[in-house]
Design a protein around this nucleic acid. Structure first.
Lengths: 147, 147
DNA sequence: TAAAATCCTAACTAAACCACTCGGGAATGT
DNA sequence: ACATTCCCGAGTGGTTTAGTTAGGATTTTA
């Protein structure tokens, strides 16, 4: 159930950009703060750009900036785009469903569905803004504090 | 965030054994019901045996049986043993912690911790018995129904 | 006691995936 | 013009996954 380095690194990069809101930060600087190899980070930032989370400026004094406000960047969305589906199995994935021959009366499917839902519940209710302010204790499910 | 085939297959096998409680079922029969290749399933059952979830009997009329009652088999434990840690990152894993240079004031760690906790909450409060009876709606967190 | 059924053990492998690296090109500011 | 920065595509070494292959050990049954 691990998250890959792409997912982790992209969130690290967004956090750096969110900290210096509206400033243009060159890749080299982001790499220094995130400890991600420059060329690898380059790929990741291009993906983040392609998906509309950041924008770039070329040339001297160029670099990257957030495209939206931190409060408007949903972590669940970032993870889905950079990392892949949240569901632990294709049979319960909303974004990339895959059928399974046992699916009809599978006793596991409800379990995987529950796992998917709990992960989505957390990630879809967290924004980059929440991460920046350390506001995770606010996470609730059904009105009851969660952690 | 996918679960691997080993994790899925081992739960499928336990479900088959749980359905025919106390009967000795040969691998070939389990394979037929789970759609897992016989020789691969063999490896998985050996692991399940090694970890004390099932027992085996050799020779003609031999096969596998659950070692405990279905209600005593914790799904979280099975997944941890067959699949690996529940945590999405080493920095928040209780069973196989790995340090990270950014850990000190990492804004992501609390998020990963929350994810780990929610997954563990579900899997550690589900038994094989729950799967067999379809009792997942009983899953609750903080006294509030969850799904 | 021989044969058949079953589990046990270890090594091997093909394909996919991951985490990068490398080389060069295109735009922009000074 | 030149330095700086992002952009793009291909390559690569290592690990993991999902098995396969081959043969051995134990038990039941005839």
């Amino acid at each position: 159930m691990k998250i890959s380095s792409r997912g982790e690194y992209s969130l690290r990069a967004l956090i750096v950009l969110g900290r210096h809101n509206d400033q243009v930060i060159p890749i080299s600087e982001i790499a220094a703060q995130t400890l991600v190899p420059v060329h690898y980070l380059e790929q990741i930032l291009l993906q983040l750009k392609m998906h509309g989370f950041v924008k770039s400026k070329r040339g001297a004094q160029g670099g990257y900036t957030l495209r939206k406000q931190p409060e408007e960047i949903c972590i669940g969305e970032v993870v889905r785009k950079l990392e892949g589906p949240l569901a632990p199995m294709g049979c319960v994935s909303l974004t990339s469903y895959e059928s399974c021959p046992l699916e009809q009366n599978c006793l596991l499917k409800p379990l995987w569905g529950l796992i998917r839902d709990t992960i989505a519940q957390v990630l879809d209710n967290t924004t980059l803004g929440d991460l920046l302010t350390g506001n995770l204790e606010m996470q609730r499910i059904g009105g009851v504090t969660y952690v």
